[in-house]
Amino acid sequence: MKLKVKDVKFSYASVPILKDICIELATSEVLGVVGPNGAGKSTLLRCIDRILTPQEGCIMLDDHDIKKLRMRELAKKMGYIPQSTSNVFPATVFDTVLMGRRPHIGWKSSDEDTEKVLETLKLLNIEDLAMRDINELSGGQQQKIYIACALTQEPEVLLLDEPTSNLDIRHQLEVLDIIKKIVSERGISVIMAIHDLNLAARYTDRIIIMNGGTIFAAGEPFSVLTAENIKHAYGVEVEVNVHAGRPYIVPIRPLR
């Protein structure tokens, strides 16, 4: 297993957010994390990237406890793209993507780092934006740039928090296609918190549904995204159809 999350508990002040979470992630696997607002999805990702420290339990990356890794060492292996970022100061796209090299380099960036940035910009087809200020770009373009930044970091595990929120459907598909492509090309593993159940069904290998800080269901998209599970987790009546070999969820009405 690439990544193991064992009995992780986390609470803010004394409000428990995560209760005994256990997850295993294989190499080159895409795990989708779905669940209602406040279920603990973002907190889970933050714990895995050690932005938050769980009160109990441990997280093992390649059989090493991440608590014992130095921050820079962890950053070489794990990338994280938060749901929203705000830049206060001007920064070009090129410089922003170059920041992904931070765990690997000292004060000065080398030609190799420049090449890696150019390579990633090309991979994501955003070369034209290279010298633009990131704050002038649309939400979809910004999301691509943050993905580019995480890719130049060359992580083995990539954590994404709502990568498609605020994106139009074209950007949603583009962003998720890119993630799928790099998973197959570079063999990285991905954990992705995502609200859209249909995108989750289409782009992930396995799905877990979280609810109230616990894992409510886990497994293949078909076994997890059932009308019964969704009714329990979200309190919504849905119809589950099949489209292109994946479950396709049509929401009907919220339950009273």
Partner: peptide
Amino acid sequence: NVMGAGDERAKSLGV
């Protein structure tokens, strides 16, 4: 520079 992009992103980049 890295912190300019937010605390969370800076932390995930090892700062």
